[in-house]
């Protein structure tokens, strides 16, 4: 009896996982065979370019139709950065005692301007090509990370102080909300750019799509500063 009990204790977790896997298999089979007409997607595909002015439909969904969700996502990153800053001790911690050769130090100096150009390109061309504020912001956040890994935390904090990162993140968040309020002043909804007719322009040009490039810029600043702050806190932890 106890042997059966022992075997049962050993295998019931695996059995549970297998049972749930088979259960999910049937659900997916149903999902795959389900033939739904997706009216909302069809509306976005057929009318999205005229209504928002952005030819990248993912960007037009993220920043125009569902701009409120993007605000919530930005809030999640702000919360993560705040939590990590709260857990970090104030005192200086000496970092990973790695020493690189001069080749790596010089290569980092050469790489950094190209990273700035790439990040800015991804942010400003977010509405006419793949990319957008999130990806560009993360590439901008790579620059403090590279500097920190190569030259140490003291040098990095001298060049870009943590207070300035917090200030940049705040500017991004407040700017996003102010741009959203612009829609209310124009007599439409919060975060409306297509409905409020903010100069949609010709689809496919750089200056077009109303508020979407500026919202992209704000999200880029916010995500870049937030992830740099998160990395800074993580490396000073403990």
């Amino acid at each position: 009896m106890s042997r059966v009990h022992k075997i049962f204790r050993k295998f019931y977790k695996i059995g549970l996982v297998l049972f749930l896997a088979i259960f999910l298999l049937f659900i997916f089979d149903e999902i795959q065979n389900l033939d739904i007409k997706r009216y909302l997607s069809e509306h976005y595909i057929s009318e999205g370019v005229q209504e928002t002015g952005a030819i990248n439909l993912v960007t037009s969904v993220l920043y125009d139709y569902r701009g409120f969700d993007t605000l919530g996502e930005a809030t999640v990153i702000l919360t993560a950065a705040a939590t990590l800053s709260f857990m970090t001790p104030i005192k200086k911690v000496k970092m990973l005692g790695t020493e690189f050769t001069i080749i790596i130090y010089q290569t980092i100096i050469i790489i950094i301007p190209f990273l700035v150009v790439l990040g800015m390109n991804l942010i400003f061309f977010g509405h006419i090509s793949p990319g957008g504020g999130f990806v560009g912001g993360v590439i901008l956040a790579m620059i403090p990370i590279l500097v920190t890994i190569n030259y140490g935390i003291t040098f990095s904090e001298n060049k870009l102080k943590p207070n300035h990162k917090s200030l940049l993140e705040g500017i991004g968040a407040i700017g996003f909300i102010l741009l959203g309020l612009l829609g209310i002043f124009a007599g439409s909804n919060f975060l409306a750019s297509g409905q409020a007719n903010f100069g949609l322009g010709n689809p496919g040009e750089l200056i077009s799509a109303g508020l979407i490039p500026y919202l992209n810029l704000m999200i880029g600043i916010k995500v870049g500063a937030g992830l740099a702050a998160i990395f800074n806190s993580l490396i000073k932890e403990g």
Binding site: R38, L40, S41, Y44, I45, G48, L57, V58, S60, V61, L62, R66, D69, T70, E73, V76, I77, A80, A81, T83, L84, M87, G132, F134, V138, V223, G226, L227, I230, F231, S233, L234, E237, G238
Partner: peptide, 28 residues
């Protein structure tokens, strides 16, 4: 369909910050 792709973009970014918080807790 563009809507699930927008959701996937959101999920990727939130997942990155979530993993950062979890790893900070592990170090703690």
């Amino acid at each position: 369909d563009p809507i699930p792709q927008a959701l996937a973009l959101t999920a990727i970014v939130i997942g990155g910050s979530l993993i950062a918080v979890m790893l900070a807790l592990v170090i703690k």
